[in-house]
Amino acid sequence: MSPIAFAPAKINLFLHVGAPGDDGYHPLCSLMAFADVGDRVVLHEADVLSVRVHGPFSGMLAGEGDNLVLRAARALLARARGPQPLVGLSLEKLLPVAAGLGGGSSDAGAALRLLRTALGVQVDDVELEAIAASLGADGAACLWGRPVLAQGRGEQLSPAPVLPPIEAVLVNPRVEVSTPAVYRAFDGLGDFGDVTPPPMPDAFESVEEMAAWLGFMRNDLQAPAIALAPAIGDVLALLADERETLLARVSGSGATCFAICASDIEADALAERVAGLRPDWWTVRCRLGGPWPDA
């Protein structure tokens, strides 16, 4: 069997974004968890380092020859001693693109973990995390796929509170949302958030307690994302009206929304109903937490 690494979807349980600094970057504070659904990266023999993309959302990456997976592989293999190995990577794209799920960063993180282990590249965790962080704001968090509190540009990580099992539903109206465009719309609003980490317990005793606490938090990019893609508002309105939903929110800059439910039975029922009502949307039942094993 070919070595394989799992690239879980990233979910921003909350996302507070501040005013841009002199360098143009926005400071943020975000509690991130990871879903047990995602993409898969597979290592195989090849004449030249390359990435083959397949899967239901592969067409959304058409023409992206220099994607994050390839950039991650090049950055890691540049640190390998001896002749360059003849390997390639296959990316099974199961997550929608430009969806607020950190898919590219998570794919890159999976490639880094996979190549380091399979090829025995002598790079420690700190250096591997630095490579991941250099690829984008979500890179460091998505490398390990475990719940974290991210600050700064997303590269300053600290442990998250202990989370309960989180049964959830992800819904995307199958529209792509440009993160730079959302930030431009956010800047235009001028309503910048406080990025001081909120007081958090060491552990949440139940998903109901966690959802109630998250209700006092926010996603500062939610309003500008809806302004650019009104279909996101349709998703949120539907999820919020369903009896199983404890909390509905946009992840990242959209367009994916998540609903947290009290139990697996309720999450199953919600996913089935949404899929029936809107078969044109991407609806996936999942559990949030992490890290999840490679499979």
Rank of each mutant, 00 (worst) to 15 (best):
Ile11Ala: 11
Asp187Lys: 00
Asp268Glu: 14
Ala271Met: 02
His44Phe: 15
Gly109Arg: 10
Val121Gly: 01
Val169Thr: 10
Ser253Gly: 04
Gly252Trp: 02
Leu68Glu: 03
Ala5Met: 04
Leu236Asn: 13
Ala35Phe: 11
Gln156Trp: 09
Asp22Phe: 04
Val235Arg: 11
Ile4Cys: 14
Lys93Met: 12
Val274Trp: 03
Leu112Ile: 13
Trp292Lys: 12
Leu119Val: 11
Leu114Thr: 14
Leu95Thr: 09
Gly233Asn: 10
Leu247Tyr: 08
Cys142Gly: 05
Cys29Val: 07
His44Ala: 14
Trp144Glu: 14
Ala240Pro: 01
Val177Tyr: 04
Ala231Gln: 13
Gly120Pro: 05
Ala225Val: 00
Gln156Cys: 07
Asp138Ala: 06
Ala181Asn: 04
Cys257Met: 00
Glu64Pro: 01
Ala275Asn: 10
Gly193Cys: 06
Pro224Ile: 00
Arg79Tyr: 01
Leu101Lys: 05
Pro96Asp: 13
Arg174Ala: 09
Gly82Cys: 00
Val274Ser: 04
Gly104Asn: 12
Ala259Pro: 01
Ile166Gly: 10
Asp66Lys: 12
Ala75Lys: 14
Asn172Ala: 07
Asp294Leu: 13
Ala78Met: 03
Asp191Ala: 12
Phe204Leu: 06
Ala211Pro: 01
Asp234Arg: 15
Met1Val: 09
Ile260Tyr: 02
Val177Phe: 06
Ile131Gly: 05
Leu114Arg: 15
Leu28Ile: 14
Asp241Lys: 15
Ile131Thr: 06
Leu221Lys: 00
Val207Lys: 05
Asp39Trp: 13
Pro85Tyr: 03
Ala46Ser: 15
Arg285Ile: 04
Pro230Ile: 01
Arg273Tyr: 04
Pro291Val: 15
Glu205Phe: 03
Ala255Val: 00
Phe204Thr: 02
Ala72Asn: 02
Asp220Lys: 07
Met200His: 03
Leu143Asn: 05
Glu266Asn: 12
Pro161Arg: 12
Glu155Lys: 14
Gly18Ile: 03
Glu266Ala: 15
Ala5Gln: 05
Ala181Gln: 10
Pro20Gln: 01
Ser134Trp: 09
Ala185Trp: 00
